Amino acid sequence: MKKIITLLLLFYSIAAFSQTVEKQEDNNIYNTAGLDVKPEFPGGLDKLNAFVNESYLKAGYASEIKGKVYAIFVIEKDGSLSDVKILRRVDPPKAAALIQILKSLPKWNPGKQNGKVVRVLYSLPLVIGS
């Protein structure tokens, strides 16, 4: 009986003090070029441009900017956008309005790499005022 109790205590102590391997969450930001599944806006890029232009009109900048504006942002694992930046020369208030519009977008379908949802750096040319 003493041997059984000693063995049980030995196995319990081994189990209690053994190291466990924790899975580290992949927070790397991937480029769209090497992904298995690229992120996409629900409805496609045409719907995205229509949404941005409509929101831009509502913000009162209808005739202020016409042409292409480049935005860069990270599409998170949940489909939300972060680190939104406007890359073209745009006045700060107009750039801030575009950033708010992009942040208010519905969630994207996130990108996947090796079957796992990943963060993706996305560059987007926006056609404004057309």
Rank of each mutant, 00 (worst) to 15 (best):
D46N: 08
N28A: 14
T6M: 09
I5G: 05
N31G: 02
M1L: 05
A15Y: 14
L8E: 11
G129F: 02
V52Y: 04
P110L: 01
I29R: 05
Y122C: 13
Q113N: 06
E76I: 12
V69T: 01
V52G: 00
A15W: 08
Y122Q: 08
L102S: 04
E22Q: 12
I4Y: 11
I99Q: 03
G43C: 07
K3W: 09
G34E: 09
N114I: 09
K116Y: 07
G79D: 04
G60V: 00
K77F: 06
A95F: 09
I128S: 00
S13A: 09
V120G: 03
V127K: 11
D91F: 14
K66A: 08
A50K: 01
S80N: 06
R88P: 00
R89D: 09
G67D: 11
S130P: 14
I65E: 01
F17K: 03
T20N: 08
T6L: 14
L57Y: 14
N114F: 06
I75W: 00
V52H: 02
V120D: 00
N109T: 15
T20K: 08
S82Q: 11
D91P: 08
P125G: 11
S104V: 03
P42M: 04
N28H: 11
A33R: 15
I86A: 03
L105I: 05
E25H: 13
V74D: 04
A62F: 08
A95T: 10
G129M: 03
F51E: 12
K58Q: 15
K77L: 14
E54L: 15
